[in-house]
Design a protein around this nucleic acid. Structure first.
Lengths: 229, 229
DNA sequence: AATTTCACCGATAGTACTATCGGTGAAATT
DNA sequence: AATTTCACCGATAGTACTATCGGTGAAATT
């Protein structure tokens, strides 16, 4: 139990990490309003005034938190895309396209919640972080669509792709939250729902670039294409 | 420009409404963190201390705000459902099922934003309001599905319906926000996306109560059923 | 061994906000 | 006309938090 004495810089670094960890926990449990130098410092085991040895002010801590969180999420997402590419069959890959982002998001529940909150809070310092994260998710889905050959050439088509990515993204987050709250215990089931929703969107894209033409006879369409996303 | 002198109670009522209106504006512009008795009272044109003539504390004002907001949103939603029932053709009714909730939500942008924020904020006093609102939306969509005969009898089926309603609801909010931010100028286009997403979900429901069976040959299914939601 | 650096400490001034209190004048009641 | 009520006011005590400052002792450097 006797710990080797740390060098000064190593000790400082440890304290800094404790502060960040404490801040993240408080942010998740009490929200941005509950995040004070008093609470963070106390939770990290140092005096309130010592907070300023590590950060200029709470702003700066939040900025660091956002950077760190962004890095973690992007890493999760990259992993997810890599794993999805390596999935065995077409069917598995299909569901994985949605299950893996779901899992990535669920792996950092506090970041997800913080992001969803900050997204629409004008007073939040994490708003940019939230917007960037949302944009990254949108790109993820947009890339999936592009990989299937659904590229948009006109304004209307681009907007349509963006709306679909936006909608699927929102649904992904909603199902992830539901999973974290215990309402949807099985992520595979959630992934199936996302697969189904996206299939509807693909049918729309296939139906041409114009407005929804109404009742479209569900004739035979390319089966391999039908199954990719 | 000479205003008739108001009775004492009428004047008090007017001030109260001014406070509520001011609070709503501040809440929307600066978030819950920016909502103080100082700002609200000043914006309503009275002294800070007079705030307490109308409300016990900020908690109570927030409670009133939530009740009022909830009432407004429920009213909007009822109107929406009524209008959807009265829509002319099947096709129009189909799109209206989604366009009208979109419009209802967009009619009270500040309530939408406040709701989305409060939803995941543990420190928010409006969390219950947000949860109730989300539940109301879910019921709206669940009712639509039930009207089409998609009733669930087992645990798995019920959860599936709930997930679909949850997902569509999240997508609706996301597209509404996009519309309010100017990214999706045309609500009809947004409604088309929602129609498409929901069609995918319906196909999943029609495919049976088991897991997603994978590539399902898009054979002819009942066209009128296909077009209802 | 002497000196310097620096992570951390307690104390504290400053800021922002809440919520109470006594006072005031016009409306309402008698 | 006399009295009471009450919406609103300014002043202010109390609370919570921020951010600075001088001090301290152990690590780092000389």
């Amino acid at each position: 139990m006797t710990s080797t004495p740390l060098s000064r810089s190593a000790a400082k670094d440890l304290t800094r990490r404790k502060l960040i960890r404490a801040a993240l926990a408080i942010l998740d449990e009490e929200g941005e309003a509950g995040l004070t130098t008093v609470k963070v410092a106390k939770a990290a085991g140092i005096a309130q005034s010592s907070f300023y040895v590590h950060f200029k002010d709470m702003q700066e801590l939040l900025r660091v938190l956002a950077e760190e969180g962004g890095r973690r999420l992007r890493h999760s997402m990259r992993e997810a895309r890599r794993a999805a590419r390596e999935a065995p069959g077409d069917l598995e890959r299909h569901r994985d396209t949605f299950r893996i982002p779901l899992e990535a998001v669920c792996r950092h529940p506090e970041l997800l919640r913080i992001q969803l909150r900050a997204r629409h809070d004008p007073s939040s310092s994490l708003r940019d972080f939230a917007k960037e994260t949302a944009a990254a998710y949108r790109e993820h889905h947009a890339a999936d669509l592009a990989a299937l050959g659904y590229t948009a050439d006109d304004e209307h088509g681009r907007r349509r792709l963006e709306m679909i990515a936006d909608g699927i993204n929102a649904a992904t987050n909603a199902l992830a939250i539901g999973h974290l709250e215990g309402r949807y215990p099985d992520l595979d089931e959630a992934a199936d729902i996302l697969v189904a929703l996206s299939r509807g969107a693909l049918r729309l894209l296939r139906s041409g670039s114009g407005r929804d033409e109404g009742p479209r006879p569900p004739g035979p369409d390319g089966p391999e294409r039908h199954d990719q996303l």
